[in-house]
Amino acid sequence: MPIIKYSPLHSLHLKNKAKFIEFSGWTMPFSYKGTIKEHQFVRQNNGYFDVSHMGRLVIGNDYLQKVSTLICSDLLELKSGKALYSIFTDDNGSALDDVIFWKYDEYVLLICNAANTEKIRNYLQTEEIFYQDLTEKTALVAVQGPKAISNLETLLPIPGSFSCLSNDKYTYARTGYTGEDGLEIMVDIEDLDELISFLHNNEIEPCGLGARDTLRLEAALPLYGFELTEDITPVEAGLKWTLTNKRVYRGSHIIDQQIKTGNHKVLKKFVIDSRNIARTGTNVLACNIHGVVTSGNFSPILQKSIGFVLFESQPDTDLLEFEIRGKFIEGKILKKRFLS
């Protein structure tokens, strides 16, 4: 029987009356006061998310040359004090995981998805890349929202966008997964209470993974297991901007070929002018090009149904037909952002 893991913040979540969800082997808070309330609070104010389930691996900078052969972005040119979003690829150029690196003078902190932590650990071991696993020794808290930075200023020096800093207690970066400004903060378990007291004293509200999902979807950010899988390349997921690794890396020849020919699956954003949610797996037709919804939910800001759909090839119309439980619902491809 698999062991269910608990975050070091679990007792706090119980005190805050969280509703829980099993996520990648972890029991994590799904919501507290309700997903939509938490979503709105992060868009207008600020909230914090416990993301301690995500893998946190420290890799010495001596190994970056090796790591660089496994990811699609340029890690070697990354300056100390900067963060980098990238994707581990396999021999087919497909995504093994999407990750964040925070680079410091001596090491990088690699943050990977909970569902993929073991896969990435095994991969690094096979490639003889030594790492230190901090996942269960630390907590990771994301503070997000338009008021997050001004609130956190009294606790920490604030790094620039996509930059990272550390002090004797906190290792942190100005990154996130909501489309809002904020910090993601890693802290040793013994220093966690101090951080949590600070958040509560500053009326930074706890938010669950439900709101994290609706926020990331509205911000058009991919979620591994949905927009990115071992069957989808970064090109297909619309993440060409991550392809900054000029050297040869796993599957790079296939990725280069996809860019050259344009023959590949295509991920698009969609909007439905109603509240019918087109959920993961919903079949979609764009004229005669077939697609499947990868993620879909209700956008609390737009008050409409939004999501991503993966097409077999580039559709030549923006008009879509969704088959939702036997009914045909019209929608359209959105070329601009969900939120302006």
Partner: peptide
Amino acid sequence: QGELGDIVF
């Protein structure tokens, strides 16, 4: 309703 969470439609 509590198990379903926010009802939107």
